[in-house]
Deep mutational scan, measured.
Amino acid sequence: EETYEVDGEEQLKKVEKMLRDRNLDVEVEIHNGKFVIRAK
Rank of each mutant, 00 (worst) to 15 (best):
D7L: 10
F35I: 15
I37R: 00
I37V: 14
E16C: 15
E1P: 11
E9K: 06
Y4R: 02
Q11D: 12
K14Y: 10
N32F: 02
F35N: 14
N32Y: 00
D21A: 09
E10Y: 06
V28H: 01
L12I: 04
Y4W: 13
K40P: 03
V26K: 01
K17M: 06
K17I: 07
N32Q: 00
Y4T: 01
E27F: 13
E2Q: 08
E27N: 06
N23S: 07
L12S: 06
Q11W: 13
R22W: 12
K17D: 05
N23M: 10
E16N: 04
N32A: 00
L24R: 03
E27T: 14
T3P: 02
L19P: 03
I30W: 14
D7Q: 10
L12P: 00
L24T: 02
H31D: 06
K13V: 08
H31T: 08
V36E: 07
R20Y: 04
T3N: 08
F35S: 14
K40R: 12
L24A: 04
E29G: 05
E2A: 06
G8M: 09
E5F: 12
F35T: 15
G8R: 05
D21F: 04
K13M: 08
V15L: 14
I30L: 08
Q11N: 10
R38F: 06
Q11H: 04
V28D: 01
V28Q: 01
E27Y: 13
E27G: 02
D7C: 15
E9F: 12
K13Q: 09
L19I: 03
V36T: 04
Y4N: 02
V26I: 13
I37K: 05
V26Y: 15
E27P: 00
K13Y: 06
K14N: 07
K13I: 09
E16L: 15
E10G: 03
V36L: 11
I30K: 07
M18N: 03
N23A: 06
Q11E: 14
N32G: 06
K14S: 10
D7R: 07
D7F: 13
K14F: 11
A39R: 00
L24C: 15
D7S: 09
H31Q: 09
V36P: 14
K34E: 10
E16T: 14
K40T: 11
K17F: 00
K17L: 02
R20F: 05
L12C: 15
M18P: 02
G8S: 15
V26H: 04
R20P: 02
F35A: 14
L24Y: 11
G8T: 15
K14E: 11
E2T: 11
F35H: 14
R22K: 08
V6G: 05
L24D: 01
N32V: 00
A39L: 13
V6I: 09
E16F: 11
E2H: 11
E5T: 12
K34T: 02
L24W: 13
E1S: 11
D25N: 11
F35G: 14
L19N: 00
N23P: 01
R22D: 03
D21G: 06
R20I: 05
K17S: 07
V26R: 01
V6M: 05
E27L: 11
V15I: 14
K13F: 03
E10H: 06
L12K: 07
Q11I: 07
D25E: 13
V6R: 03
V28W: 09
K17W: 00
N23L: 09
H31Y: 09
I37L: 01
I37C: 13
V15E: 01
E9Q: 07
V26T: 05
L24M: 13
A39S: 08
G8Y: 09
Y4I: 05
E5Q: 06
L19A: 01
L19S: 01
E2L: 12
E9R: 09
G8H: 07
Q11V: 09
E1V: 13
V28L: 03
E10L: 06
E29W: 11
D25K: 11
V36N: 01
N23R: 07
M18E: 07
V26P: 03
R22N: 05
R22Y: 08
T3K: 10
G8P: 02
E29K: 08
V6S: 01
E1M: 12
V6T: 04
I30G: 06
R38Y: 04
H31G: 05
D25A: 10
E9M: 12
Y4M: 03
E16S: 07
R38M: 11
K13W: 06
N23K: 06
V28S: 01
E27Q: 11
I37P: 13
E29S: 12
R22C: 15
D21T: 03
L12T: 02
E10M: 06
E5A: 05
V36Q: 06
A39Y: 06
R20M: 08
T3E: 10
T3Y: 14
D21Q: 05
L24F: 12
V15T: 04
V15N: 02
Q11M: 13
V28I: 13
D7E: 13
E10W: 04
E1Q: 10
A39H: 04
L19T: 01
V36G: 05
E2C: 15
V36D: 05
I30H: 08
R38E: 10
R38P: 11
V15K: 03
L19D: 03
K17R: 10
I37Q: 06
D7G: 04
E1N: 10
I37F: 00
V6P: 02
E10C: 15
A39Q: 01
E29A: 10
K14A: 13
R20C: 14
K17G: 04
V36I: 15
D7P: 06
G33Y: 00
R38T: 14
R22Q: 07
I37M: 00
E10T: 05
D7M: 12
E5M: 10
R22L: 10
H31I: 15
I37S: 06
D25P: 02
I30Y: 14
D25I: 13
K34G: 14
T3R: 11
A39K: 01
E27K: 10
V15D: 02
D7Y: 14
L12G: 02
L12D: 03
E1F: 13
K13P: 01
Y4G: 02
E9A: 07
E1I: 13
V28K: 00
N32P: 00
H31P: 00
V36F: 04
K40G: 05
L12V: 05
R38Q: 08
V28M: 03
K40D: 02
H31S: 08
R38H: 13
D25H: 14
V26G: 01
L12M: 13
T3Q: 10
V15Y: 11
I37A: 04
R20V: 04
D25Q: 14
D21N: 05
R20W: 04
V36Y: 04
A39V: 15
T3V: 15
F35E: 14
K34W: 06
M18A: 08
Q11L: 12
E10D: 11
I30N: 08
Y4L: 03
D21E: 12
G33N: 06
Y4D: 03
K14H: 09
L19G: 01
E29T: 13
M18L: 08
M18G: 04
V36H: 09
G33P: 12
V26L: 08
V28C: 15
K40W: 09
D21M: 08
V36K: 06
E27D: 07
E2R: 08
K40H: 10
D7V: 11
F35Y: 11
M18I: 09
E29V: 12
M18V: 04
G33K: 00
E10I: 07
V26E: 02
K14I: 14
R22H: 09
D21S: 07
I37T: 09
E5Y: 14
E9L: 14
H31A: 08
N23C: 15
I30E: 11
E2S: 05
E1K: 09
K34P: 00
L24I: 09
R38S: 12
M18Q: 08
I30M: 11
D7N: 06
R22V: 03
R20E: 05
L12Q: 02
D25M: 12
T3S: 09
E27W: 14
L12N: 02
E9V: 11
E1C: 15
I30D: 10
E27S: 12
M18R: 05
K14T: 11
F35M: 15
L19M: 03
L24K: 05
V26A: 04
D25T: 12
T3F: 13
V6W: 07
E1T: 10
R38G: 07
E29R: 10
E5W: 13
Y4V: 03
D7T: 10
E2K: 07
K13A: 11
E29C: 15
L19C: 13
M18H: 04
T3G: 12
